[in-house]
Design a protein around this nucleic acid. Sequence first.
DNA 1: CAAACATATGAATAAATGCTCATATGATAA
DNA 2: TTATCATATGAGCATTTATTCATATGTTTG
Lengths: 125, 125
Amino acid sequence: MEKESRKIMHGVECCDIEEVHADKVQMVSEQMPPEDRLYDLAELFKAFGDTTRIRILFALFEAEICVCDLAASLGMTQSAISHQLRLLKQARLVSGRREGKQIVYFLADDHVRTIIQQGMDHIME
Amino acid sequence: MEKESRKIMHGVECCDIEEVHADKVQMVSEQMPPEDRLYDLAELFKAFGDTTRIRILFALFEAEICVCDLAASLGMTQSAISHQLRLLKQARLVSGRREGKQIVYFLADDHVRTIIQQGMDHIME
DNA sequence: CAAACATATGAATAAATGCTCATATGATAA
DNA sequence: TTATCATATGAGCATTTATTCATATGTTTG
């Protein structure tokens, strides 16, 4: 996922109506959340922005599942699943606990279901 | 944003417990939404997965704004904003209407606010 | 009409991403 | 302990992505 350290934007050359709509420009910058919050938000949604990760999350809607069964369920390699689980853990969307030889993954909290449900509502119009 | 036409996965070599947890594997595939729905969902969340687009959405929380004012507000070029607006339109998160020389953008519906609010709740723990 | 303005878009580029392969880590079983 | 199993991870590659620059489209004004 993007590291988002893109070089700071320059060249704010634009049309001449800045003064006309200065009120809006002002209001926007007043209400804009701080940079690190915006960054965290974007990172969170990036975690949902891939079909493999979405499938993993749907799988975990049903049950707690080990890496190996996830790989089998989704028809992908253990390595691919494991890499994606790392990203989902970083976004705190899933957690895992060891059970003997295996590590069982589960949804970290209820926001995951809510966000996906809202997304579903949106694409279903 | 990813075209997501990645070659179909192969090599389902995995551990030997597939049979052990066959019930889970089965349940997962029964409940998994169809491929095109998963794709649309991932594409939707990708649209939220970039700080520039998140900033545009926050800006539009406050008011309907033309491209030029958006560029001024965010300190970015008109071109960069316009490219991102195209993606947001494709995801049906924003719409625009012409008003004289300008095109004024606004949030397409209320899911946008809800989804971002849920995301905020999640990162705020 | 032409000139000026606001927005859109194509090409190019640097950076990020997802998968594969090989290998490492860490737990259990013999 | 050593062997085996389940998971994690680093490197490499092909693809995707966000921005810039230059230019095109479309509207209004003179």
